[in-house]
Design a protein around this nucleic acid. Structure first.
Lengths: 129, 129
DNA sequence: CTGTATCCGATAAGATACTG
DNA sequence: CAGTATCTTATCGGATACAG
């Protein structure tokens, strides 16, 4: 990961245009990255180590999880603590801003639950038996 | 646009996993698409025709704008009205859900403004002269 | 245990040409 | 005016191998 964007691309120019217009676009670019919200929610619930988050989110890969932790730290939404034990241990915790974001995301989550287009109804079908 | 996802990909499986886990992920996938929020805000402000939105959002392309309108309509966030005049005219307006989403987005916008990592400070630099 | 480096396939964004 | 069809490129997500 950590590949730099090609500054000559239209893609880059447009994203920059949007981010300068409103910081919302930068934040959305972050929180919409795959797994980001789930990682955030894991930490909120106290599942706060590399391994435990990886287990909780069955399919996430090392590469992506490491990248997501790095991003969340960069944006000061989580903080990282390294414990010098043997074997060593790393824990992530939400910052105040991180907690605030979680709360906002939960509001959006309620909203999306109420959107008919989301939650494609046929997903459950518990009519068996 | 409108290219179908390859159902055999890990990419697809993971996104499906997340969307089934929480509808938040589906909504985020939508609102984080480039220009979506800006289009929504344009409509909210009464800039509600293809041409006028295109002019307001300098760099957006026809292809993308059409796709965004289609998505917003599909999710029932905006509704489309065709006026049979000569030349004909099409107007988009927010639905109740669309208005509700705008309000939520504005809250997140306030939050992102307060995040130090967003709004990279050096963007203004009005110290000249 | 907690990551990093490198490479590759899938998807999103956009350019261009065209239509009723 | 308000789009659609087709193609190209950039970026993202992920697999694999490896490291402190």
């Amino acid at each position: 990961m950590a590949t730099e964007r090609k500054v000559t691309s239209t893609n880059y120019r447009n994203q920059s245009f949007l981010e300068e217009k409103c910081s919302l676009n930068e934040l959305l670019d972050l929180v919409s990255k795959r797994w980001i919200c789930e990682v955030l929610f894991c930490i909120e619930e106290g599942i706060n180590r590399f391994k435990s988050v990886k287990e909780e989110l069955s399919y996430i890969s090392d590469t992506i999880l490491a990248d997501r932790f790095r991003l969340l730290e960069k944006y000061d939404l989580v903080s990282k603590e390294h414990f010098d034990e043997i074997p060593f241990r790393v824990e992530y915790t939400l910052t105040e801003k991180g907690q605030e974001l979680c709360t906002l995301l939960e509001q959006i989550c309620n909203f999306s639950d109420s959107l008919p287009a989301c939650k494609i109804e046929s997903k459950k079908k518990t009519t068996s038996g």
